[in-house]
Each structure stands twice: as C-alpha cells, then as structure tokens.
Design a protein around this nucleic acid. Sequence first.
RNA 1: GGUUCCGUCGUCUAGUGGUCCAGGACGUCUGGUUCUCAUCCAGAAAAUCGCGGGUUCGACUCCCGCCGGAAUCACCA
Length: 484
Amino acid sequence: MTKIVTRFAPSPTGYIHIGNVRSAIYPYLLAAKNNGTFILRIEDTDQNRYVEGATELIMDTLKWLGLDWNEGPEKGGDHGPYFQTERKTSYIEYAKKLIAEGRAYADPTDSETIEKYRKEDEAKKVPYLYRNHRPTETPEWQEGIPIRFKADPKPRDWHDEVMGDLHAGPEVQDDIILIKKDGLPTYNFAHIIDDHLMGCTHVMRGVEYLPSTPNYLALYEALDIEMPKLVSLPHILAPSGNKKLGKRDGAKSVTEYRKDGILAETMLNYLACLGWNDGTEQEIYSKQELISKFSLDRIQNSGARYDETKLLWMNGQWIRKIFTEQGVDTLYNKTAGFWPTEAENYPESYRKEVLSIIYDRLKEFSELPSMTSYFFKDPAINTEMLTSNKFLKNLSEQEIARLLNTTFTALQNTEWTEEKIQETLNDLLAKTEKKPAELFSLIRIAVSYAPFSPALNLTLKVLGKDVSLARINATKNAFLNDLQ
RNA sequence: GGUUCCGUCGUCUAGUGGUCCAGGACGUCUGGUUCUCAUCCAGAAAAUCGCGGGUUCGACUCCCGCCGGAAUCACCA
C-alpha cells in the first residue's frame, strides 16, 4: 500500500477563516489516520494579493488546532521548498516540456485583444473560449510572455471521493494560462506540478474547483502524471442565506474564537463534524477519536450551515469534559488571559478554586470576568436588588436585617468547610422557618450581588469566612441605615 | 447565459428497497434536582423526506422530468 500524502495549500492572503479551515482538517485527519504525511505548502504565486504575516497567521491557526504538518515551512522535508515562489524553476521546466511536445505555447496576444475576443463572443452569444482564438504564430518563449496550455477538449469522466462519478463536456476545457507574464505559474498549473513532485496521493479542496477539474485532467494527461485522488469538500454556508461562508459574509478567523475563549478541542470537533460524521450518534470527539474514525466516504456532499449556537454548546461540553477527565489544573491552564483584572491580586490556587465551582456554567471563557468578578472584588451594595427579588419581595427591611444578623452569628461559629457551612445553613433554615428560596437567595445576593452564583455553601467556602461575614455585615448595615 | 454540483425537522445530521406513519444532536418549550444561573435527568412540539411522474407487491432510498439553491466561467487561488 502506498503511503498517503495529503496537503493543505493556502495562499498567504490573510487569516484562515472557518469557511476554509476544513480543507486543512480533513487532509490532516486522513494523513494522521494512515500514518501518512501531511504537507503545508504556501501558494504565494500571486504577488498582488500577498499579505505580510499571513503565513505566520496560517501556521499559528494550524498549530492551535493541533494540525501539525510533517513537511512545510519551519519543518522542512524532502520535498521542499514549500513556498511556490521558490519553486519557480520546476514550473518553467515542465511548461517548457509541454511547449516542446506541442501541448503548450507562448502567447503573445496582449490583454486588449483578449478583452476584444471576449466582447465579441459575448455579443455573438457564444461561450468565450480562448482556444477559439488561439494565435496562429507563436513566438519562442522568453520570460515576460505567458504560456498557455493547448487544450484537448473531449468528454471527461472522473471520480471524486466525495461527489462520486463526475462528468464534463469539452465546452469547459480551454487554453488556460500556465505561466503568467511575471514568470510565476498560475494556481491551475502550479498545484499540479507540486502535488506530483511532493507525491500527494489526495487532493482535497473546496467544491469551487470542481468546474475547473476537466482542465486539470487534461493537464495530468499531457504531463503523463498519475492522477491523485480528488476530494471535493462542500462549502460551509453562512448562518443566514445560502451563500458559502466567506470573509465578506463575516466569516471570523479561526483564532478569533480562541480570543473568545473557545477551546481548540471544540473548534476542531465542531468543524470536523460539520459535514462529516461516523454514522453513530456520538457528538463529542477528541482529536484522537477523530483521527481513528475519520473516513472520506462519510464526508457530506452538500453544504452545511455554520451554527454558532451549537459551537457554544459544544464548548460547554468540552469545558466539563476536560475538568472531569483531566482535572482543574488542565482546564485552568487554558483560561490564561480571561480572568478579570482584579484576579491578578489573588493566588493561582484561589483562582482554581473559583474555576472549580463555576466551570459547569461556562460556555466560553470570555464569560469569566462577569461570572467571577465578586470573587475578586467586593460588589457594590444594591439593596434594590434584594428587595425586588421575587423570593424576597415579602420580607420587610427589618426582617432582612434580622435574618442577616442571625446568619452572621451562626456563620461566625462555623468551621469553614463545605459540609459544615451547609449544616449551618440547614440549621438556619429550621431556626428561621424560612424556605430555602428566601433565606438562601438573601444570603447569596448579599455576598455576591450577582444575577446568579454557584451553590451557596460553595460560594461561601471559596469566598472565605472573613469576606463572607464582612459582606453579610455590610448589607445588614445598609438596611439598618435605611431604617433609621 | 453556458457548465457543474447540491436538495431529510428552524439548524447539523442518521438513513444505500420493507426493521422509518423517518432516529440522534443543537435550539425551543415543559417538568424534576433544598435559592439563582447553569449542569444533569425526564418529556414535548418540530420533516406530507424540494415537486411531479415512473419502476416495484413495496421508494426517503432506483429512473426520468421539473423546480429551487449554490459554485464556476481571470495572466485569483
């Protein structure tokens, strides 16, 4: 069995967004599953669209997701260089070979003339095909003149691993540009040479390349190159409408989700399963599970709409999974940079305690500041919040002050453990003859002034005895002052 | 316009001729878990399988037509 070689071949024009990252994920998974090679190749032949730093951005995204490439920039490998601009000579070499064999030609036609041909065909309502305007006299090639393929239009049948058996007629095959005026190859030509030279067994890319596949087929044939397996990946659709998700539709960069506090595990899981599933009812997959279960034939052949709600749900699942399976330390290490600024004044151990009791309501780490602020900073007292609470509406201010006083006293003599605090709270319930809804809400709000918080005994435990008592006292005093 | 691809609950999907008056998940709604928010658990609503014809004893599954959506037609990738 031949070794599987896949590649991700982005052009350095910006960040990787969620609409196109699957063409990195799937090749990675396929190679990893089969102990193959995953190559990162940078297709930088378009000088005009080149963006400084884009390659780094792309590598950063890949690293974050854990899609480690075996060959490519930073890694090297036996098939380098991995930037197309550095492979210029091989393209020229192959193009020259095609010219020598009469399968390509240097095209002296200037762009105005080409534009004229196009207009003429449009006016005549015939499809514009350059091969109908092929120049009769072609010069010897020299840099500065584009090289065109000499099409061999005929019906083409091929197999796509996702789309199945495909067919196209001669009307879509044309004299495509191989080498541009600037001496660099077009994508159409370069990727074929590179895939061949790099030994790629699978070419995975978006379905937008489907219409030009017949031209590639002709090129493989003319070059006498064994065709790799073709895998067309359907588009990810924008949340609304039916358009493919692109930067123009607000497709966020993959790493932007990292800033929001989405885990890499979630991102990989969600994106991989958008348009792929293993046929079971499993929803949560680790990278290892993805690798072992991945298969080309289970890639969906219709586009999938991107749904951020499910991503958020999945992130919650992953947060809980990591906490229960790998412990608070592992989860904590992923929260760096998300804590409220005041948290810096507290030891790591305290932040971990806080995380341990709030992690199960987290959906993304960006919620951390609003969810935990009262653990790090005394909340502003807001008596209105207490008196308007639906469980506390029937309590007079006097009663509130009295209840808080009783609580203060009881807690003062409590050993500060989860269990003991809970015992005290239960005793208080019996003594005051209040419903949990009343008493606990009261205490909870008095110490947090937050719309919600973890279980009361846990909140008090983590807050600490001194802080808890001080806050209860402060609220009690606020009501006493009110009464005076 | 030409060419090509796609079409199952709102969304992601299972389904390869009978086990499907279509299963799971997200979302929504209801109830439960000594307070809140969430988690978790239980339950509900939600798809005439794009439409119309065939083939067949029987079709979401096969065939044809139509409709709808998308992609693409560059010296961009």
